[in-house]
Design a binder for these strands. Structure first.
Lengths: 228, 228, 228, 228
DNA sequence: CATGAATGAGGGTTCATTCAT
DNA sequence: CATGAATGAACCCTCATTCAT
């Protein structure tokens, strides 16, 4: 889901085996990860503007010069952090959608996983920071949204179309819109309080379950085949 | 709705009458408004960090010294801007809710007004800026949310309870949650693309109407008295 | 002659009289002079690149911020130093040319004053620095040459034309070229050793006199009306 | 003439023969030349300060470490470049002076070759760069002048003395001074406009010829045996 | 012995804040 | 009391030089 929520599961920063030599400048994946990890922590803690490159070098344990060999400038570094995010959540969501269980259950599990992730502390912080730099890095924010947040609904969309084909859902005019509707409905009343910091902690699992249950009920009430 | 979208209609900054003399330092409401207006424009245009106090003095037509008499620092000034927001949208929403029309129509108009406002360019910019400074000013963001964004749902909540009492809606366990659900459902699929800049312009009136219509249908399908 | 050789005889940095107030930002001529004087010393001592803005603030006794109020950047500051040069040498040269004395004497005095100035330590240092930054500030170097070094020959050119009219010189095809020829001839064998630092001190007055005398002899031998 | 105008025709960098092994550290003349060639190109293109050691390693195709084995630092490297200059112009000038032709013709050809070389783009660039670093490397600039620019006049000086002996010139008090006078007279009105960038391109051959012709006329008028 | 990744002091510049006027 | 010139710490970034590989 790539909402800056989880560290990348990049190939784990192992140095290219076999060749005894030192890696090329700016090409040592271990060091690169080291920098990204440090920068990730700093950016998360302070936000983009308040994070200084000095802070980052300190946290990452590299020198300024090295930093600038690996990343041209602060924006590039930040963008790299955003882009390396390939959250494990996607895999989980896919698994849920592929299980052959009652529609209501699948939707419930999907919505729960989706909501839990997007409202987690790290995901929320990531979203906030990206929103904060949107004036300077609009492309980045857009990409972040498309490859992150929006991926869940895309997956769900395919699933819903299959459900329609199987007759479990009424025919849908605009499945992508419906799909997003479901996602937002699961987070309804929770997303923005979290984003604006009114809700300091992620909601409890019970709270999320309840919200999602309500969403599923509403959703199936509206679009379910046998419903209403 | 106070999403930084509209200038305050504060009591118009009239100087305290009677005393012929000059107002005490930092107490002239006219000057205060003048500063807030200028700062508001600058912050909206550039965001928090990119706005310099120099820009603000220029736009407001006051000197640095004066600025610092009225506001201790940049954060205080920003906070004052956020807090004076009392958008006219609230009045409009109240009017809609007080009209004695079919429930579906009222919900439709309410949702349309609510959504249109929250997705407008100025409101979106305001929300982004507040989110961007949340690490430095967490209280402010929280306040911003409570006195802004969340006011619509609070109003709707009261309305819904009356509708339950009048038998137009099924009994509701948690009306505030339902109310927020409705608000977020109206913006479902639109809010976050706007916030993250993927959707560059506010959605068209038609697009919003369609979204809201779908939301109302779903909502009444789930909670309407007669079932839809 | 403006070869960075002498401090400007600007209106001596007196503050605008009458108005008791403080001068506008970046407009106090006293402070401006103070900065220019300090920067002048530093640039002269270290050259352009080796002079840091920190050095200059220290020498000028102003803060970084102030420096940047008066001058947008390092290049602008340097350009201002170059451009304020309005050497007193021009006046002296003009006086010499206006005296009604034998041509040989006038040329001798003119050549001596011209050469003495252009080979002085400060003028030489100024020329070197300008040459050193020519890649980054080509316009400046060109201007420096035209309004400085080249002014002497321009004045002489007019003088020579009058002498032709008065029959003291043979008719001249290209008086500007001849004029420059005379100037360079006066410095012949001295200019480049000075510029390249082979000659550490300015030549003695006797050395210059001798050089100029030789130049005048050659010049009048070639262009003088009566021969010899 | 060694005005940085041409690459040296050094003894061609052949490796010391006989020893089959690898040359001692910093002693392989081939590698040394390779470095000097690359550095020469870079310095000429960018000037001293703007040239980075990285640029030089890239252009020369050697590593940083190697560079620093052969040259202690940037200044040393630059000095080495200056000092290896042994321009082919000297040979040409010598040939001209050895031809047994009328004095006027010899002087004309000599002056033309001398002037053309010293005003060429590469020679001018070289002179500028040396002048720009004179504060940091005063000895270097002095050497540059003595072994470069000044060699022409030295050669001419010998020639003139012979001409005096042969009765083609009047007896001369200070032949070196006269010799320099002639050189500078040939470039009169051209050298400094070129150096300061006011004249963007080298003067045309016609322009130079004209200038030199005028110089020769003046010179022979003053010092020629039959003259005046 | 060659390599080039790493270093970190120092560069120019900005701007929130202060305080003499 | 208003003013805005002055401050100086902190910003991002470069690059000559070093030293582990």
């Amino acid at each position: 889901m790539s909402d800056l929520g989880e560290a990348a599961d990049i190939e784990d920063g192992k140095r290219p085996e076999g060749c005894g030599g030192r890696p090329a400048a700016g090409e040592d994946p271990v060091k690169r990860e080291q920098i990204l990890d440090g920068a990730h922590r700093v950016f998360m803690r302070m936000g983009f503007d308040a994070s200084s490159m000095n802070d980052i070098t300190r946290e990452a344990g590299v020198s300024k010069g090295t930093l600038y060999v690996y990343f041209r400038n602060k924006e590039d570094l930040f963008a790299a952090i955003i882009q390396r995010q390939k959250s494990k959540i996607f895999e989980k969501l896919r698994e849920i959608l592929e299980e052959d269980r009652p529609l209501a259950e699948v939707l419930h599990d999907f919505g729960t996983a989706f909501t839990t992730h997007l409202l987690s502390e790290t995901a929320i912080r990531g979203q906030r920071i990206v929103i904060g730099v949107i004036d300077r890095m609009p492309e980045l924010a857009s990409t972040f949204f498309q490859t992150g947040t929006n991926t869940g609904p895309v997956m769900l969309c395919n699933f819903l179309e299959k459900q329609v084909a199987r007759g479990r859902l009424k025919p849908i005019e605009d499945p992508m819109m419906i799909s997003r509707q479901f996602g937002d409905l699961c987070m309804a009343g929770l997303y923005r309080p979290r984003l604006f910091g009114e809700m300091r902690e992620p909601p409890s699992a019970e709270r999320i379950e309840k919200n999602v249950a309500s969403a599923v009920r509403l959703f199936l009430g509206g679009y379910g085949a046998g419903g209403a």
